[in-house]
């Protein structure tokens, strides 16, 4: 990274660098590295511009971080975090001794992957398609409407789903019976729930996610689009060769960002939809819900911190790997 810093002349090289990414290796010119003080001074304005954010994250994220030590202690309220007895990895044990870890990891990761992949596909799809639509009112109204589910709390979503699917009085049960069919007992069938949960998640998050892609399309250079139109490109070709490539960095960034939380589940969604219906746990239990069930009657700050730390560490290494991979393909797309 340091070689970007050499001198202002080189900015030009970097400016047109996008045309010549493949020549990256040859652009590593062996300038003498200037002193740190000089580099800092040269970039004082940019550093100052980052300063509010740096201070912000220092105060709200880094300052309390040493407190994560709580995960290794038997936290005593009257002693404080750092004077509480150190217990090593004991707070991490229960997750590993549960015998459920494989199942929990599998469920958590698979759901997250489904949310990330299907979610982004759907959001991309709607953003691109709506962009092609000419009728302005339709475009606007449909976007607003797609945003509605985002506001419905998980409690209410669970209630809606129950009202649709429950065996005795559900809306769909009524429908199926009036058509002479036999309603399956959805709430006793674990295999149905991956579909239901993924669908509900997509339903909730599509409107929000579409906005990101919409903005990215909007920021796109429309001269290219016009040129393509003049060249006679059809709609499909325009999307395939102009819109999609423009959105590629956004997709990659969103993916990289999401992957760090691959072990972190959406507790509210799962807990409200499934609750303590253990007939569904096989396919619906994620780390958060398991931890909740294990600790709901014994409050333990140290243990919940330990679980969080475990999720973070794994997520961190996955992101490091993914980022290095992306960087290897194209440093421009990497997160850092």
């Amino acid at each position: 990274m340091w070689f970007f810093a050499c001198s202002s002349e080189q900015n030009h090289v970097q400016g047109v660098d996008s045309l010549a990414k493949s020549k990256k290796a040859s652009s590593v010119v062996t300038y003498r590295r200037p002193s740190l003080g000089k580099v800092l001074w040269q970039n004082k304005t940019l550093i100052l511009m980052c300063l509010p954010a740096i201070v912000f994250f220092f105060v709200f994220s880094y300052m309390p971080m040493p407190g994560a030590y709580i995960a290794f202690t038997n936290f005593q309220y009257n002693k404080g975090i750092f004077d509480s007895p150190f217990v090593g990895l004991r707070n991490f044990q229960f997750l590993f001794q549960s015998g459920q870890l494989t199942l929990l990891l599998r469920n958590t990761v698979l759901y997250n992957l489904a949310f990330i992949i299907l979610g982004n596909v759907l959001q991309l799809f709607f953003a691109i398609m709506l962009n092609e639509v000419q009728a302005k009112t339709y475009k606007k109204v449909s976007q607003s409407v797609m945003f509605l589910p985002y506001f419905i709390s998980d409690v209410l979503v669970a209630l809606l789903v129950y009202n649709l699917l429950n065996y005795d009085y559900g809306f769909i049960s009524h429908l199926v019976r009036s058509l002479g069919g036999e309603m399956p007992k959805v709430y006793q069938n674990a295999n149905a729930w991956p579909f239901i949960i993924v669908l509900v998640n997509l339903w909730k998050s599509t409107g929000y996610g579409t906005v990101v892609y919409f903005a990215a399309i909007t920021g796109m250079d429309s001269s290219m689009m016009e040129a393509a139109q003049i060249d006679g490109a059809n709609a499909w070709q325009r999307i395939r060769y102009i819109t999609l490539p423009t959105l590629k960095p956004t997709v990659i960034i969103l993916f990289l960002f999401a992957i760090g939380g691959i072990l972190k589940g959406n507790f509210g969604l799962f807990y409200n939809l499934v609750g303590n219906n253990s007939m569904l746990f096989k396919t619906t239990d994620i780390i958060e819900t398991y931890v909740y069930r294990s600790m709901m009657n014994s409050f333990n700050f140290s243990q919940s911190s330990a679980v969080g730390l475990f999720q973070s560490v794994v997520g961190f290494f996955i992101v490091l790997g993914a980022n290095a991979f992306v960087k290897h393909l194209d440093p421009d797309y990497a997160l850092f």
């Binding site: 880094y62 309390p64 407190g67 994560a68 709580i70």
Partner: peptide
């Protein structure tokens, strides 16, 4: 430096 904070948090009590 910024991204790291999205992965690691101190947890409820320290915050």
């Amino acid at each position: 430096y910024i991204y790291f904070t999205s992965l690691f948090s101190a947890g409820l009590v320290p915050f």
